[in-house]
Nucleic acid binder design. Structure first.
Lengths: 157, 157
DNA sequence: ATACACCTTGCCACGATGAGAAGGTCAAGC
DNA sequence: GCTTGACCTTCTCATCGTGGCAAGGTGTAT
């Protein structure tokens, strides 16, 4: 029943992946090039929609496109050892934890600064003062190398 | 002693902002155009370095460039009400919290999927199955009621 | 004079997504 | 037939912060 071919719009609606992103995924090789109808329109099957849903789900869990590439490969490989999938998933969990820790550190620092700020009409502001002073100089134990330096992985989500 | 003018490289070293990013910040108007020596080299003062450190610190706390623009404005305005700074900071804390929540939700979902995966040589894999099924349709897994119901917070191996 | 470190500008790339332009295709209604 | 409107095609540009590379000018030390 799902063997009906459909255009990109319907595939987008059914999968939850925008038509724009379907084309994008095709262009970067994440999904194979869709066959074209005589009109030049891309033609998708129910199976393709299934794949797109897989991709959307993986994206919503924060997997990068290259990770999804691997996941798709494992998904299609009926004889994969589940060990490899689990390793991928747990590695991603670790990444998520790392990013959560980084954001948490930012939040904590900022909250501490904000806690000391009156937040009224007066100009004195420990928040601005805190930003103006290098992070390490604000510590009780003056560890020279600023271990508080965090490097966001250039990947906002 | 800090009135000495310096080239971009030294300003970068002293502030912790790369020369590249200093030029970038200048080009997008976050910092004013640096005066040029006869050679065409940009000339920076100790004050400029101070500003750059402020920027670096704000970036490391996750403020966006446009937010930093506002913070710089408040920093320079000696008569700002600290209320406005605090509002900015707390709004950013809320953003951070939001992102942390999102990442935490991803992590939790992924951990739950991983917890049910044996992670051995066999191909069966609840992780891939979970990705293949739309999120809403995965309330319970009737296939293995013993695992899903007994272990609420199963930890992955 | 020659080497080398530093500076300049400019373009390209990342990742995932959105916006828009300019044009082709299809199906329904007259 | 013809028009309309929804849908499709490709293309380019923008986001955001950062890095890389290239080609060329400058400054200083040997």
């Amino acid at each position: 029943m799902n063997d009906r071919q459909m255009n990109i719009g319907e595939a987008a609606r059914r999968s939850g992946v925008s038509a724009r992103m379907i084309r994008h995924y095709e262009s970067i090789g994440l999904i194979p090039k869709a066959p074209r109808a005589y009109s030049g329109y891309r033609a998708y099957s129910g199976n393709d929609v299934h794949t797109l849903r897989f991709i959307r789900q993986a994206r919503s869990l924060g997997f990068s496109v290259s990770q999804i590439e691997q996941l798709l490969g494992l998904w299609r490989d009926q004889s994969r050892p589940s060990r490899r999938v689990k390793a991928l998933a747990l590695a991603h969990v670790a990444e998520l934890e790392q990013r959560i820790r980084e954001l948490g550190a930012m939040k904590r620092t900022l909250e501490q600064l904000a806690a000391h700020c009156h937040g009224d009409e007066r100009p004195e502001c420990p928040i601005l003062d805190g930003l103006a002073v290098p992070a390490g100089a604000r510590r009780r134990s003056p560890a020279r190398p600023d271990l508080t330096q965090i490097k966001p992985k250039a990947r906002a989500c």
